[in-house]
Design a protein around this nucleic acid. Structure first.
Length: 367
DNA sequence: AATGCTGACAACCGCCGCCAG
DNA sequence: GCTGGCGGCGGTTGTCAGCAT
C-alpha cells in the first residue's frame, strides 16, 4: 500500500562480503539437519547474520554437495556454447543441462572465457569486418549464429585445446600461504585449472558415475585446498542428487557418501607431513573413508553426525590438537554444530583472519 | 622488486514470476 | 482479481591472484 516492496532483509543487520568458514559451517550444518524450506527464515534459525538470499546463493553456488567444481571440460564448454545459441542468456536453463554446474559458474565462464573465444574466432573467420558477425555469434538466440558456429566450431575446439595446453597449464592455484580469511576465493582454489587436467579425470575412480562426482574434480595438486569441497562430499548424507530439492526433506536420509573417487586424494593427504602430524585429521579422514563403504554407518546416525562434524571441523581447520586454547575453541565450534544451541558468534572482521586464525580458531594449517 | 594489468569468480543487486491468502 | 512474500534469475560489481612490464 504505497510502501513498495519491503527489502528482503535489513542491510544494516547483515554481514556482507565473502563468507567465512565458520559461516559456511553453520549453513551447511543447518541445511544438513533442517533443509532449506524457507530461505528468508533460515539465517535467523541458523544463527547467521546473513541475508536469506545470500545464504541461498552461497549454498547453491558453492556449498551444495553436488556442485561440480574445477575448469570446464571441452565437452562442457561445447555444450554451453551450443545451448547458448539456442537458449541465450538463460543460464539456469543451460545449467540444467550441465549436472553439477551452477548458472553463476556458467555465466562467469561465458563472460570471461567463451565469449571472447567466440569473438576472436569470428574475427578470424570474417576478417572483412562484417559488423553482424559478433552479434551473430554472441547474441543469445540468433538463429543466424548457427552458420558461423558450425564453421567455427572446429577452430573453437582447437583453440580451446590450445588454450588448455597453454593458458591453463601456466595457471597456478592461488596460494593460501598468508590466509586472510577463509573466503571462497581461498577455498575454491581446490579446483582451479591445474597443470594436469587429464590427471584429474583419470584419478577419478567413478568419473562416469552419474552420481556426485565432485571428488573427481579435485585438484590433487593442492589437496589442502579441498577442505570445503571434500567435507561437502562427506556431508552428503542426504541424496543431494536432485539439485535444489535435495535437502527439503531431511528425513529421507540415504546415507550416501560418494567419496570413493578421493582415494588418491587421501593417499596424498597421507603423504603430507602436517596431516601426518595431525592425528585427529587422519583419524577422521580414515573414518571418512570407511564411511564411504558403509562401515561407519553401523554405529548409528548420531555417531555419524559426530564423526562428520569432527571431520568438518578438521576440514575447516578448526584444529584442536595444537593447544588448549584451540581445543576449547574446537569445543566451542562443536557447540555451533548443534543448531539448537547457536552459541557462538560469527562476526569476524577480515583483519582477524590475517594470521590464519579466527579468534581462537585455527583456520588452516601453516605450511 | 615494484607496479600495473588482466582474468577469474564469488557475491550483490534488482527485477520477475509464482503462489498463497 | 489483488496483494504481498518468496524464490529464482540475470546483470553487474568487487576483489584478488597471477602475469607482464
Amino acid at each position: 500500500m504505497g510502501k513498495g516492496r519491503a527489502p528482503c532483509c535489513d542491510k544494516t543487520q547483515v554481514i556482507r562480503g565473502p563468507w567465512s568458514s565458520a559461516e559456511d559451517l553453520k549453513l551447511v550444518t543447518f541445511i544438513q539437519k533442517h533443509g532449506h524450506e524457507n530461505w528468508r527464515a533460515l539465517p535467523k534459525q541458523a544463527g547467521l547474520l546473513r541475508c536469506g538470499k545470500s545464504c541461498r546463493l552461497r549454498w547453491i553456488n558453492y556449498l551444495r554437495p553436488d556442485v561440480k567444481r574445477g575448469s570446464f571440460s571441452k565437452e562442457e564448454e561445447d555444450t554451453v556454447i551450443t545451448l547458448h545459441q539456442t537458449l541465450g542468456n538463460k543460464w539456469s536453463k543451460i545449467a540444467s543441462h550441465l549436472p553439477g554446474r551452477t548458472d553463476n559458474e556458467i555465466k562467469n565462464v561465458w563472460n570471461t572465457h567463451l565469449k571472447k573465444k567466440l569473438t576472436l574466432k569470428d574475427e578470424e573467420e570474417s576478417p572483412n569486418g562484417d559488423e553482424s558477425k559478433e552479434s551473430s555469434s554472441i547474441s543469445s538466440s540468433s538463429s543466424s549464429s548457427c552458420t558461423i558456429m558450425s564453421s567455427g566450431k572446429r577452430n573453437l575446439e582447437m583453440e580451446l585445446d590450445h588454450q588448455k595446453n597453454q593458458g591453463s597449464s601456466t595457471k597456478r592455484p592461488r596460494i593460501t600461504e598468508n590466509v586472510k580469511d577463509s573466503s571462497p576465493r581461498e577455498v575454491s582454489n581446490q579446483c582451479r585449472p591445474t597443470n594436469k587436467p587429464k590427471e584429474l579425470s583419470s584419478s577419478s575412480i567413478s568419473s562416469n558415475n552419474s552420481n556426485i562426482t565432485i571428488s573427481s574434480q579435485v585438484d590433487i595438486s593442492r589437496p589442502e585446498d579441498d577442505q570445503i569441497g571434500s567435507l561437502l562430499n562427506f556431508s552428503a548424507q542426504y541424496d543431494f542428487h536432485n539439485s535444489s530439492e535435495e535437502v527439503s526433506k531431511p528425513e529421507e536420509i540415504t546415507a550416501e557418501i560418494p567419496f570413493e573417487s578421493d582415494y588418491d586424494f587421501w593417499n596424498m593427504l597421507d603423504s603430507l607431513s602436517y596431516f601426518q602430524s595431525n592425528e585427529v585429521q587422519l583419524e577422521n579422514a580414515e573414518a571418512c573413508q570407511s564411511s564411504n563403504y558403509g562401515d561407519a554407518y553401523s554405529t548409528g546416525e548420531e555417531d555419524q553426525n559426530k564423526k562428520w562434524l569432527r571431520y568438518l571441523e578438521n576440514e575447516l581447520g578448526l584444529d584442536a590438537t595444537k593447544d588448549e586454547n584451540q581445543e576449547s575453541s574446537l569445543n566451542n565450534a562443536a557447540e555451533t554444530l548443534v543448531p539448537e544451541s547457536f552459541q557462538y558468534e560469527i562476526p569476524l572482521k577480515p583483519a582477524e583472519f590475517q594470521s590464519g586464525t579466527i579468534g581462537n580458531f585455527h583456520l588452516w594449517p601453516s605450511l
